[in-house]
């Protein structure tokens, strides 16, 4: 009998002491991979997909331009035609040259010529606007360009 009792006494709970550790590991993973978004994007973004993607070499050298039609909230104010957004505000094409200058000023002296502009453009935008942006970038001598796209899933 005594033998039986001793066996019954063993705890029936599943040990959960390792659970916080597991959760912490997940937490750290997300903390490390997280990039907190600095700008609110005010334009619709349905990014096109492509297969021949290349990675950006260094993120610190990249400045983003967003193009698309304003989000539904802002359509009453700005209309439905695609607009250019840089750092939180809509900008006309002729303001881009100044913007490139500002972005370039943020970089270190030896990296100023390596500024890369990433264009995040909505699928439905027209080439006319994109071309105007490209001409402005050529004028500002920011010639490294990247069209941000999504990896196409191949079947």
């Amino acid at each position: 009998m005594s033998k039986f009792k001793k066996k019954a006494n063993t705890s029936q709970e599943i040990p959960t002491s390792a659970l916080p550790d597991i959760i912490f590991m997940l937490l750290f993973f997300f903390m490390v991979t997280t990039v907190l978004r600095e700008t609110t994007i005010n334009v619709e973004q349905k990014i096109p997909d492509a297969t021949e993607l290349r990675k950006l070499q260094r993120k610190s050298l990249v400045s983003y331009i967003y193009v698309g039609k304003p989000t539904t909230k802002l359509q009453a104010q700005f209309g439905t035609e695609p607009l250019i957004q840089v750092n939180d505000a809509f900008k006309p094409v002729d303001a881009l040259q100044n913007w490139v200058m500002e972005e370039r000023a943020k970089l270190d002296e030896n990296e100023k010529d390596q500024l890369t502009v990433a264009l995040k453009v909505d699928k439905e935008a027209k080439m006319g606007l994109i071309n105007d942006v490209q001409i402005a970038l050529r004028e500002a001598d920011a010639r490294k360009l990247m069209y941000t796209t999504i990896q196409e899933i191949q079947d």
């Binding site: 959760i23 997940l26 937490l27 950006l56 990433a118 050529r138 010639r143």
Partner: peptide, 27 residues
Amino acid sequence: AFLLLIFFLVTTTIANDKGLSLQLPPK
């Protein structure tokens, strides 16, 4: 820990820094 985890899950945007690269011609 779960609370913190969920916070980061929600705020995370997995950065997609890939695309078609192009060199524009000079002015």
